[in-house]
Design a protein around this nucleic acid. Structure first.
Lengths: 233, 233
DNA sequence: CAGTGGTCTAGACCACAAG
DNA sequence: TTGTGGTCTAGACCACTGG
């Protein structure tokens, strides 16, 4: 009954979402199967399928063969945010970006780093310390370890011109990684570099970038006070 | 040439990803159009379409009508994390969850809160302060404002039994929201409630949940030291 | 086993945007 | 104008999984 005209996939998505939201279909309820919905909306089953899959991807529907489609009881809200290239992040604030490499060499990393990167004992790694600046003021302090295996052309890369951050984002596509965000009190070194008082609350991000079980790089970023990570749902 | 057998769209996705990653198709390059790929892989165009759309969703391909499909030059890495219900988060740590409501009343909120929630001047809102515990130790301190408009049955809800957090997640599905993460030094009040020293670095999350331009609730969570927000890419 | 979602196909038309 | 992706269709078969 009701709906006679509904063609696009997204129209159907809207209708279904509206029914969920208005609690016409409540959490836990089974909804009509694809064939029935296709009949109701006057479209092909594939179109309904596409709409429902999109909703299921967003977490609001649970779909199982034979068992049918149900409204998720405890929808797990998902937030998505893009991992910024710091330069772009600064430029988005309409500030001048610059960075200084404080240190760049090759050495045997501490044990915890070595293990985290799955390096062999006493294997060396490239260490690059950088401070990112916005309008000449410290914005973030970056401590990075790079697996030399992924830098065949190390000599060619000049991290003074392009930040290691940016270089890797562009040259290690499609890798997987873990991200950890936390709050830390600034250590003496961090405080000195970021030009704040020791003990200041620092927003920290640690990122491990891997490709096929091998760790490409490990980065710890300490942002200057005031930093906020924003996203919408 | 080369590939003769490739049916599922996920197979095709893998092949395309491999070509991007191996730099056979470099950032900025245009890749063959759907019809050509369908011919190469021996499948329907719709199948290729599905594979390419999935990759484009992940940000590695740019697709435009007429202009064709290109490998994204500066792929924007996206991270997804699920917004946890604190109780589940604690239970996932295999600790006993409990919570105490420190305060629960209705009052006129401070101006900044009132404006943020788009309430009328001098309109009241429900205020609920909660401390979440893991094994009887403070885990997070929650300061919440609720738009009474969304609590028609306020009297029926006993936030001592089900946390406001959980109640709203279950009863305000499909709403949109903003999330802000930051690091703050613990205020005296926060320090007292979380049983830490004032000035301790605190991981903080502020969340505004809305539905169709109306703000449902505003929450500020202050996590006890050691908290980490984790995700993988 | 049987019902449901998952996917593929071949063809068609549409919508957008580059030239 | 024209080439490209975006989508819809009708039908088919497959793959899970509940009963």
């Amino acid at each position: 009954m009701s709906n006679s005209e509904s063609n696009s996939w997204q129209d159907i998505q809207k209708i279904v979402l509206e029914r969920i939201h208005s609690r016409q279909w409540k959490p836990g309820d089974m909804i009509p199967n694809e064939t029935e919905l296709a009949a109701e909306f006057g479209c092909a089953r594939a179109t309904v399928n596409r709409a429902l899959q999109a909703i299921a991807d967003s977490g609001l529907l649970d779909r199982k063969r034979k068992a049918g489609t149900r409204v998720t009881v405890h929808p797990e809200r998902k937030a998505i945010f893009s991992i910024p290239i710091i330069r772009k992040e600064v430029e988005a604030l309409k500030k001048l970006y610059s960075h200084r490499v404080l240190q760049s060499d090759t050495r045997v990393p501490p044990l915890d780093i070595s293990q985290c990167m799955k390096l062999e004992t006493n294997a060396e790694a490239v260490r690059v310390d950088t401070v990112h600046m916005a309008n000449e003021k410290p914005y973030a302090y970056e401590e990075r370890w790079i697996n030399p295996e992924f830098l065949p052309t190390t000599a060619d890369v000049n991290f003074s011109e392009i930040s290691a951050n940016e270089w890797l984002v562009q040259n290690a596509p499609l890798s997987t990684g873990d991200l950890v965000f936390s709050a830390l009190n600034a250590t003496g070194k961090q405080a000195r570099i970021l030009q704040v008082d020791p003990g200041q609350a620092i927003f920290s991000m640690t990122r491990k970038t891997s490709h096929k079980e091998k760790v490409i790089t490990l980065v710890k970023l300490a942002f200057a006070p005031g930093y906020e990570l924003r996203t919408s749902i």
